[in-house]
Design a protein around this nucleic acid. Structure first.
Lengths: 148, 148
DNA sequence: AGTAGTTGTATTCGTTTTCATATAAAAAAG
DNA sequence: CTTTTTTATATGAAAACGAATACAACTACT
C-alpha cells in the first residue's frame, strides 16, 4: 500500500478536483448506509457538528456544516419540531439563535458516530497508523491555512 | 508553514469531514469567481472533465463530475443546445450517448483552465513544491484506493 | 440621541435536483 | 432463438435549494 501516485491529466493534478473526488468517494457509502436507516445526510452533519460543542449560533453552525444559510435555517426549524435539537434566544444578541443538541439528538448521534468511526476504520484499513495521521494532519493544515 | 496539526474534537479527526471541509474551502472562492463571469460551476466541471479526453459516454462523464445521472442527463442536453458540447450516438452500443466538447466549449474551457491553475497556485503559494506534490499524491492514492 | 451602515436570521419564489420510473438495447440464461 | 436480467439514458412529478430580499437588532459616526 503506497500513498504515492503520479498525475496523468489536468484533473489528476488539480487539487480542487482531487479533494472533491476523494471527499465524494469517502462519504458516498456511508451516506447510503445512513439513508438506508431513514436519516438524511444533512441531519447527520448537523448533529455531528453539534455533538462536539455546547451551543452554536446559526451562523457558527453553518460554518461547520457548509450549507447555505437559508438551507440550514429551514432544516433547524424542522429538526427542532422533531425534538432532535433546541433553538434558544441568545441573551447577548437578540437577533441570533443559539442551537444545541437535545437528549434525543444525542442518543441518535451517538449511534451514528459509532457507525462513522467504524466506516472510517474500514476505509483506512490498508493504511498504517502513520499514514493515516499524515493524511489527516495535512488536511487539517490545509483547512487552517485556507481560513486564514 | 507546516503541514502538521493536531486534532481537537471528533470532526477534526474524521477523514470525511476534513475532506469535505477542505474541498469546500478550496473550491468556494473559485466558484464565486466563475459565477461572477456568468458561468455555473456545473458547466465548469463538465467542460473541465471533457477537456482532458476525446469523448465519454454519459455514464463515464458522470463518474468524473460526480452528479446524479438525471442531473447530468439534463445538463448535457442544455449544454448541447448552447453549443458547448456535442452528443453523438455510440456506434457499438445504441443505448449510450457519447459526449465530446465542441470548439466553442474548448475556447471557454481554455480560459477557465487558466484561471483554475492561477487560483490553485495562489491557494498553495505558501507550500513548497515537495509539500504540494505530497498532498496531491496522497489524495490520488486515496481516490485509487477507494475505487478499488 | 439620531442616522447610516452592518449583521443575524427568516421567508419568498423561481430554479435545480432528484426519486422513481419508463424505455430501449445489450447480455445472460434457459 | 425466446425469455429474463442487466445496463444506459431520459423524463415527469415532487422536493430541495438558493438568490434576493425582508426584517429586526446591533454598531459606529456625527
Amino acid at each position: 500500500m503506497t500513498l504515492m501516485t503520479k498525475p496523468i491529466d489536468f484533473t489528476d493534478d488539480y487539487l480542487a478536483y482531487l479533494l472533491a473526488r476523494s471527499s465524494h468517494l469517502v462519504s458516498e457509502q456511508f451516506h447510503r448506509q445512513i439513508q438506508a436507516q431513514g436519516w438524511s445526510t444533512n441531519y447527520w452533519r448537523i448533529l455531528a457538528s453539534l455533538s462536539d460543542v455546547g451551543a452554536l449560533t446559526l451562523t457558527q453552525l453553518n460554518q461547520r456544516v457548509l450549507f447555505k444559510q437559508p438551507t440550514l435555517s429551514k432544516l433547524v426549524v424542522k429538526m427542532e419540531a422533531e425534538q432532535l435539537l433546541v433553538r434558544h434566544k441568545h441573551d447577548a444578541d437578540k437577533r441570533s439563535v443559539k442551537i444545541s443538541i437535545s437528549a434525543m439528538g444525542r442518543t441518535l448521534v451517538a449511534d451514528l458516530l459509532a457507525q462513522a468511526k467504524a466506516h472510517e476504520a474500514k476505509v483506512l484499513e490498508d493504511y498504517s497508523e502513520e499514514q493515516q495521521q499524515l493524511l489527516k494532519s495535512m488536511l487539517r493544515g490545509l483547512v487552517v491555512h485556507l481560513q486564514e
